[in-house]
Structure formats: structure tokens, C-alpha cells
Design a protein around this nucleic acid. Structure first.
Lengths: 391, 391
DNA sequence: TTGAAAGCGATACCAC
DNA sequence: GTGGTATCGCTTTCAA
């Protein structure tokens, strides 16, 4: 009796395929295929009939069969800068790790790297377009100058996903990034609470012409203005992500701000700022909140010199960006146009979780030594690694 | 010239399959298959030869072909409590969303729900085992009483993944949860900074016999002891996740702690605590940090009455748990035994990001209105939704 | 112990 | 416009 129940549960009716549709309509599978894919050479009436039936029986294509029979290879271009490596290497890893799972599905990743944000990105994008890529992940450093090429890509029907920073005014499939405004206001709130709502703060940013940087500043300003009236912004330093510029400008500002209570560094350029603080003798007394996480930052958080840093989750950004393109290409699903990740707050107490994962990041792939599962395939070279990065 | 380059790039040599292996060895693909899968009825010498060659040419099975030809259905059991819904519903969603992507790959999810943690979980697990599940996701409320059944499952070779809380002493494939100790010490650090390192704090927990709860308390204690010597713990209240108990016990404690500076609620049971604080007239003056996020908490964070809450990322927990089982079953990859997520800090400034996604969570699936992609399949019923939940 | 062949459910091409 | 069929790379079964 129980036995029978079990058997029944297993033997659910097979989902309808094009063969079933063809049969009930008394036509051939070739025609069904033409109808389902808007292929030329089919009578509109037949087409309509097929689509109606497909809809009615809830036809869903068997993707495994599709991948197997189709010779089509989707090639996804990943155009990202080399610097800042602590960030973009992890974006690449996130993409690579999820892409591996889909290799059998005919999707491959083609990387193109260039020196830094905005430096070489045009050439890289040109190369990708020349290469007839089917999908694209980019981090537009200078969206304005990239616009013509991006429009060309979009015009060709290529799904383009921006990571880390948006390309305002240029239509594209989706953007994945941390919510910059929230990032800024989050720091505002932390700063407000850490300082008991009193004191003057310096903000160090990159360049306010970059949307991302401006939004962080605005978010910070807004939070301060609305919630922490006794907190003031002593200065906003644009350091253009340059170490020397950051150091020099900060020294000047610090010299004229003896009562400094806090510093917010809204880009990854925090090391020179720390040096300037030290050289100014403000080492221990100032509450510092930074952005991003890289090895050199760890000891400073560990020692308490930096109170918190805002982690922008590069691995997850890559993961989501790739999935968006994959699902669009393969499954025909359009992702949300905007994917705003919530930034992580990293402080001394949770730092070690992030570091552990950063380490595993540089570890050899087969370190885990996959045991054999029943599937019995692991021994033939690891088929996929388990994503063990920071999420 | 350029043209030739492109063509070449496209025409990379086809990866070797069992057919190639069979050919070079002068045997049949049937034999190769037997060798690769440890199937009976094969000469050990042949077997060795096949394996050696497979290794040497870097053979990797084409999963699409495998899924297509194999009639095997993997059924993954998901045994989770109904309560607390704000948490476990999202775990289920995380599982469901990634599972959908793998439906064509012969993996299906079988849900079994029971009233609450530890209440009905034995029966549910028994049912799952009777049902001959191939993989299992559970949240062991009472690991000790679940132990025999879990061992039975593991003994049968079923990959078991625990979410939210561990099952210490019981061997299983993996555990996915927030790092409780870090969760506690993170709150300790926040509390220390928010209070300027001064004052007495009450901790409200569930039951210290639960590993998870104890670890949070320990993490909190450790952080306070090591870093915030002027911060004291006035009392630890065990409320057993019961509203009345929380309310009554808190009223008592609060009455005898007039100088209270902060409250840390380390489970989702924060509402009655808030009520007790109000009734005691301590509404505005106390710094409160809670755990988890659910609709009723939002206005309290918004208004600033709760300074921060620790979000345990249920959706991501589900996602990782399912992926661990999937990769083990299908790809033969063993995941890390322990997956400790970093808890998120949610405060007023980043709350809206979480709420936006909570809303989309209750939205109809086709709300986004998938546009057609070139793949041309979206119209036939959405093949997969884009995961839009909180990560 | 091994070989041969029939699927799996699509795509793609050729013939009518 | 439409039908038929080879094919993708593997699993599974039946014969030898």
C-alpha cells in the first residue's frame, strides 16, 4: 500500500514537449519549433494555434535538450579594470564562479582587462564589440565617453550590465551596485552615533563628477543635516583616487581643523589619509570610517584606528551581474533594471569573517579535495568549485 | 585576416567525450561508461585504462546530455518550521528561487513544514526518510532528539544541510548559518560605541541550551569584557521565545534596573521587550539592538527607538544550502562543512533597502513582466524568476 | 565482460 | 509552408 503510494508519487506525468504539441495538432515538430521561435516560413494561423496550445498546456522547453542540440555558444564579455584589484578581482571571481556552473549550458566568459577605471575602457569595449560578444559586463568609469559604444552594443541587442557604478542616460539591461546614497547615509548614522552627535567631520572622496561619489556625499550630508544637527562637515576633499593628492590635501585640511572629530573616506583611497592623520598627530583621537576592504586595512580595523569600513560586496556584484545576463540570454527573463545591494558594515568584531574568506580566495582550487558523491564525477577533475567567497 | 581570427576563436576543439575515449582505446562507449561510474561487470584493467585516459584528456561529462538521457530525478527535501515565518519563509524562497533554475536538471524540491522549531520536526523527518528523499535541508530545533534520524539519513548517504542552527556532534554534509559568536560580539561593539562605553545592559535571549543563543551571549560577553570594561551586563533574560515570558521577565528586570542604558534582544522576540520598556517608561532613553527583521520592527527602527537590528539573511541561507546539496548531488562537489554568513547591520539609514525587497517578496511573480529575449522563450510561461530578494 | 543500439527533447537542415 | 530526420553526448538495456 505504502509502496504503491510511493510509486505513484514518482510517476508524475511527463511535462509536455514540442512532440506532444505537434501530435495533438497533427503537425510536425519542425513547425512547432518554427512557431515557438518566431522563425520565418510559417503560416500565421498555424503559428497562432501552436502558441495557444503551448500556452494552454504550460509548455516549457527542456533546457538540457536545448543546450545539447544547439551548437550555439553564448559568450559573455567581462570588461573590468585591473585596479583596484582588491575590488575588481573579486567581481571577476564572482562572475567566474557562477559561470562555471553553466559551462555545460554553452555559456562562456571572455575577460578583457584594462589598467584602471576610465583608462583603456573604450579600447576594451571596442575589442569586445569586434569580437561579437553576446552579453557584456562593464564598470563604466567615464559613462559619457563610453556612451556611443554602449549604445552600439545595446542597439545590437546585446544585454549590458553595469557593475559598481551606473551609466545614467544610457539604456542597458541592468545595473548592479551598492546603493551609494544609502552607503553615505549609513556612514552618517554611524558617525553620528559613534560621536554622540557632536563634532566636525572631514569627507574624503574621489571626484564629485562621478555619480557614485556624489551620491555617497549627498547621502552623508542628508543624514547629518536631518538627524545630527550638531555634527558639521569641516571639509570635503576631492582626491581623485590619487594617493599623493589625498595625502597632501588632507594634511592641509587637517592642519586647519584642529578640533577634528571624524573622517569619512568614501573611496578605497584611505591609506594616504591615515598617513596624513598620523603625521598630523591625530592618530588615536579621530573616529574614522572608510570604504572597501583590502589587506592593508585589516590591521587598522583590528587595532581600532578605523572604526568601521563599508564593504561593497564585489563578489556578489559579479554574481548578480552574470546571473542577470545568463537568465536573459538563456531563459529569456529580464532582470530588474536596478539592483541595489545593501552595503555591509565591517568592524573589528566581524572583520575576521571577511578575512577568512579573503584568504580562501587566494587558495588553490582543489584544496577542499572533493569527495566522491554518488554522481561519481568529481574524480575527473573538479567540475565546479563551491563558491566560498565573501557574500 | 580579422575574419579568420574570429572564426578560429569560435572553433576551439570540442571537449572530449566518452565517444572519443572509447575510440582511442578501441572499446565501446558502454564500457567507458561502466568504468567512469564504477558500474559492475567490467575488467579492472580496462577500467584503469579508461580512468587514466579520462584523467589525462581532462574528461568532463556534459551535464546537459546527462540530464537529458538520465531518467533520474533528484528530490531534495526541505524540512522547515512555519514559525517564525518572517525568517523561514525567506529561507524557503531562497531555496525555491535557485531550485527553479535547476528544474531542467532533474532536481525537485519537496517541502515539509511543521509548526515551529522543535515541534513536529521528528515526524517531518521521518516522513522525508520514508519518502526516500535524495537530499535534505533542515533546521534542527532539538538536535539531540533528532540525532537518530539524522544519522539514519547520513548513513544512507543522503546529503544533509542544516540551516540557521547547527547539529553539533552529528555528522552531516554542511551547515549554513550566521556566525552567532560574531553576531553577539558585533552587537557588543555597536553597543559599546553607541553608549560611549558606559552603562549597564540587559540581554534578552531564548534559551541558553540552544547553541546558537549561547554563542551570541558569549560573543557579546567576550566583546564587552575585552573591549568595554565600563560596560556591564545587568541581567540575562531567558524568554524561551515566548511573548508573555519575555514581557513579564523584562518588566521585573527593568523595575530593578533604573539606570539601564541598553538592551540586546538576541532572538526575534523583541516586540514584547519593547512593550515592557514602554510600560516601564524607558521608551526613549535606552539604546536597543535587536535581531532579525520583520514588518513590525520597521517603524521602531524608522523612529529610532531601535538603534539597529542584526539581519540573519534567511534568503541567502536557503540559497547556499540548496546549492550545497545540488552541487554535491549533481556535480560531485563537497561544499565546506561550515558556511558562516556575516550578519548584516540594519539601521534606520539602510532599512529602506531591506523593506523594498521585502515588499517585492510578496509581489506576484510576473510583476516584472519579462520582456522577450532573443532566446524567445519567456512568453511560454516564465521559465525562472529573477531572484530579487534580500541578500 | 563487452558491444550495439535505442532513447532523452530539443535544434537545424534538407526535401517536398 | 511544412514534414522528416540526423544530431547533440550521455544513460540504459539487451545481446552476445
Amino acid at each position: 500500500m505504502r509502496r504503491r503510494r510511493k510509486t505513484e508519487a514518482r510517476k508524475r506525468t511527463k511535462p509536455p514537449g514540442i512532440r506532444e504539441i505537434a501530435q495533438t495538432l497533427g503537425i510536425s515538430i519542425g513547425t512547432v519549433d518554427r512557431a515557438l521561435h518566431d522563425r520565418p516560413g510559417i503560416n500565421q494561423t498555424t503559428r497562432a494555434k501552436v502558441l495557444e496550445l503551448a500556452e494552454r498546456v504550460g509548455y516549457r522547453p527542456n533546457l538540457a535538450a536545448r543546450f545539447l542540440s544547439s551548437r550555439k555558444q553564448w559568450r559573455v564579455g567581462v570588461n573590468l579594470p585591473k585596479e583596484i584589484a582588491s575590488f575588481f578581482d573579486l567581481v571577476r571571481d564572482g562572475i567566474q564562479d557562477v559561470a562555471r556552473s553553466f559551462e555545460s549550458n554553452g555559456v562562456r566568459v571572455v575577460h578583457r582587462s584594462y589598467p584602471r577605471l576610465g583608462e583603456g575602457e573604450i579600447e576594451a569595449l571596442e575589442a569586445a564589440l569586434d569580437d561579437n560578444i553576446d552579453g557584456l559586463v562593464i564598470a563604466p568609469g567615464r559613462p559619457e565617453s563610453l556612451a556611443p559604444l554602449m549604445r552600439r552594443a545595446v542597439g545590437r541587442g546585446i544585454p549590458v550590465v553595469c557593475v559598481n557604478t551606473d551609466a545614467p542616460g544610457i539604456e542597458h539591461l541592468a545595473t548592479v551596485s551598492v546603493d551609494s546614497a544609502t552607503s553615505g547615509s549609513l556612514v552618517g548614522e554611524l558617525m553620528g552615533r559613534f560621536l554622540g552627535g557632536e563634532g566636525r567631520v572631514v569627507v574624503v572622496t574621489g571626484q564629485l563628477s562621478t555619480v557614485d561619489h556624489l551620491q555617497k556625499l549627498d547621502g552623508f550630508r542628508k543624514e547629518i543635516a536631518e538627524r545630527w544637527p550638531s555634527l558639521g562637515i569641516a571639509a570635503v576633499v576631492e582626491a581623485h583616487d590619487d594617493e599623493n593628492e589625498a595625502y597632501e590635501k588632507c594634511r592641509q585640511v587637517l592642519a586647519t581643523t584642529p578640533d577634528l572629530a571624524g573622517v569619512y573616506v568614501s573611496t578605497a583611497n584611505s591609506i594616504p589619509v591615515m598617513r596624513a592623520l598620523d603625521d598630523q598627530g591625530l592618530g588615536g583621537s579621530v573616529t574614522i570610517i572608510t570604504t572597501d576592504l583590502f589587506p592593508a586595512l585589516a590591521p587598522l580595523i583590528e587595532s581600532g584606528r578605523i572604526s568601521a569600513t563599508i564593504y561593497q560586496r564585489p563578489w556578489v556584484q559579479g554574481q548578480i551581474a552574470f546571473q542577470a545576463i545568463y537568465k536573459f540570454l538563456v531563459e529569456g527573463v529580464t532582470p530588474p533594471a536596478v539592483n541595489r545591494l545593501s552595503p555591509h558594515v565591517v568592524m573589528r568584531s566581524n572583520l575576521k569573517l571577511f578575512l577568512e574568506r579573503m584568504r580562501s580566495d587566494t587558495t588553490e582550487v582543489d584544496g577542499g579535495g572533493a569527495r566522491r558523491s554518488e554522481a561519481g564525477t568529481a574524480r575527473h577533475g573538479s567540475i565546479a568549485t563551491f563558491a566560498d567567497e565573501i557574500r
